[in-house]
Design a protein around this nucleic acid. Sequence first.
DNA 1: GTGCTTGCAAAGAATTTGCATAATT
DNA 2: AATTATGCAAATTCTTTGCAAGCAC
Lengths: 144, 144
Amino acid sequence: MSTHAHPATLDLAATLERLGARMTAPRRRLAALMERWAGAFSPEELASALPDVGRATVYRTVKLLTEAGVLCRTGLPDGTPRYSVDQPHHHHHLVCVACGRVEPFDDPALERAVRDAGAGAGERLVGHRVELYYRCERCTRDAG
Amino acid sequence: MSTHAHPATLDLAATLERLGARMTAPRRRLAALMERWAGAFSPEELASALPDVGRATVYRTVKLLTEAGVLCRTGLPDGTPRYSVDQPHHHHHLVCVACGRVEPFDDPALERAVRDAGAGAGERLVGHRVELYYRCERCTRDAG
DNA sequence: GTGCTTGCAAAGAATTTGCATAATT
DNA sequence: AATTATGCAAATTCTTTGCAAGCAC
């Protein structure tokens, strides 16, 4: 619904402030990097993109933001961990099996089907996760 | 369709043979253990259940069977890896967030919705994964 | 100033690999 | 007998933790 085209740079930083965390340079740089990252990333990738920020800080910040709910942990089919900036609303992921890029998407019909499936199982659902694996345009092209 | 009620002990072993792998005691014991395991397991759990089988062998066997497609890798929301004996047909998972137990399920309506969602995304889908998180009966009871 | 953060290095946990030995075919 | 698999231990990879020094508030 919202059409704020630029949720950008302030979201993660704002979240950190909301948490009562201090606004330090490493955190600011990490937040900016994550927000401009196309798709999903691993802590390791962040760390090598910011060599002068300690790995520990990278992991601590990712953990902080994940617990705050603004980062979302995903993974490739083989379990390789990836994080992405979470949408404010519930959604799922389109994961490229070649490059690991993650696109969020949501689909009301799918949500309904998931809810129904859970009802069919007759259980106390607390959440769900849907991942569609594909080969993105770029990777398809690159592979010839 | 098939009503073989007892796919049991032979499936994993049969798969190993089909792969041209040798039928050794460790492999037989691991296969039997996985098949009778209720829900999903981690390599670590297998290893401690069979202390006299080397961890390396556990990991090698799990990898072998996963690549052969008879084991299926899943994970808790936090990424903790779990494996389960795969159903011969496509399916999804009901994962207990408390104990990690995994129940396979499938739901044609859900499959249809997933396929449609993929079509909407207009991409070359190569697969998908759906995980429903819940609290199983036992855990609900234990938690009071 | 006081207390939260950082970066480094060490500690851990999870998984893989090298290699001599043991077991399968 | 030839080859593959095992188990141990060392090596990797990923992530967390302890701690003194450095910033934010």
